[in-house]
Design a protein around this nucleic acid. Structure first.
Length: 328
DNA sequence: CAATGTCGTCTAATCCCCGG
DNA sequence: CCGGGGATTAGACGACATTG
């Protein structure tokens, strides 16, 4: 199998997205049917839509996917540093070009099956053969033990890079992941996280593969662990810190609801809300107020509608159902 | 004790189904 | 086709548990 896949990555330049243009060339004796359908039309449609959206950052805040290459720390301009606090300097926010759904590969889908057949599995240098690898197979674990190879254990492995701002796209169910250029990538390669930490030290984290790549629980835990490794050692974050609703916002919500419902529909409600708060700096609040999405607002009302908004009250901090333990 | 892994809580963003 | 509502999946973080 002398096949080799040439992937032409498209750099997503915010503001001008050019989609896919794939080309998976299999240099092999077999002929390469260049007309293979690489992606279900429907999906392609969605991806396109998504990319458009992604490249049209809503004005205001929202850091777009910065060139998170292992480049300089990128000082970034910081805000007035209202209060001291952790001033975690604006971190690098990265996000995959395709959403979860778009990256999932369906083994039962004909065109996906074709892609899988044409794709190469990640190197054994990461860990030995998947088939007969595991030394031990701890029954209680969702993961299996593997014998890590040089790519995962040797800091000096040829070609290894240790970015200060590592890229990472969540693991999705299944061994394969669809890339922006619509080729497939073996998620095995994401099990080894290489980065240069805040202290300038090169690190390699080795996360054992799931026994079952389709087990969502295993995938979820794997994602949490990986994201945590990156979060603790770099400035990279995959999304903004969630900002809770503040009393002023909730007061507005209350005043604009009738029996728990928007008076003029959610669309207007969301627009008006953001016109009122997005980007505003409210005394006492931490930084400018974030833009709230339709999802966010409807969820807020759904959560506290019956117990608060419908009763003419606004939720108080920590009224969810826990009071958040502050000191312990 | 330090480094890591995991859990709990809060909130966001989708996805999906269903009814108008 | 659009919007509502419920269900999923997920990230940030602090706190706690485990490991070495």
């Amino acid at each position: 199998m002398k096949s080799c896949i040439v992937k032409l990555r498209v750099s997503l330049v915010p503001g001008r997205v050019r989609v896919p243009v794939v080309k998976t060339v299999c240099v092999d004796d077999s002929d390469t049917d260049s007309e293979v359908e690489f992606m279900p039309e429907k999906l392609a449609e969605k991806i396109k839509k998504r990319m458009e959206k992604a490249s049209a950052p809503a004005a205001g805040k929202k850091r777009k996917r910065t060139a998170t290459v292992d480049e300089a720390p990128a000082p970034k301009k910081k805000k007035p540093a209202t209060t001291t606090t952790t001033t975690t300097t604006p971190t690098t926010i990265t996000q995959p070009a395709l959403n979860r759904k778009g990256r999932i590969v369906d083994t039962n889908n004909a065109s996906d099956a074709v892609l899988i057949a044409a794709s190469l599995k990640a190197s054994d240098d990461i860990y030995m053969s998947d088939d007969e690898p595991a030394t031990t197979t701890d029954e209680s674990s969702l993961y299996k033990n593997v014998v890590w190879g040089p790519e995962a254990t040797n800091i000096n492995y040829p070609g290894s890079t240790f970015p200060k701002s590592p890229q990472f796209s969540q693991f999705v169910p299944g061994r394969w992941e669809r890339m922006p250029d619509s080729t497939l990538s073996d998620q095995k390669s994401k099990l080894v996280v290489k980065l240069t930490d805040k202290n300038g030290r090169k690190r390699i984290f080795k996360n054992p593969p799931p026994k079952d790549w389709n087990n969502q629980d295993a995938i979820t835990a794997l994602n949490k662990r990986t994201v945590q490794q990156i979060r603790r050692n770099t400035e990279v974050r995959f999304r903004e810190v969630v900002k809770a609703y503040i009393p002023e916002e909730r007061r507005w919500i209350l005043n604009n609801l009738s029996a728990g419902k928007p008076q003029k529909g959610w669309k207007t409600f969301v627009k008006d809300f953001n016109t009122q708060f997005e980007g505003q700096t409210i005394p006492g609040a931490d930084g400018p107020r974030p833009k709230r999405t339709h999802s966010s607002l409807t969820k807020e009302v759904e959560r506290f509608g019956s117990d608060f908004y419908c009763k003419g009250k606004i939720p108080t901090a920590g009224s969810g159902k826990n009071s958040k333990s502050k000191a312990k």
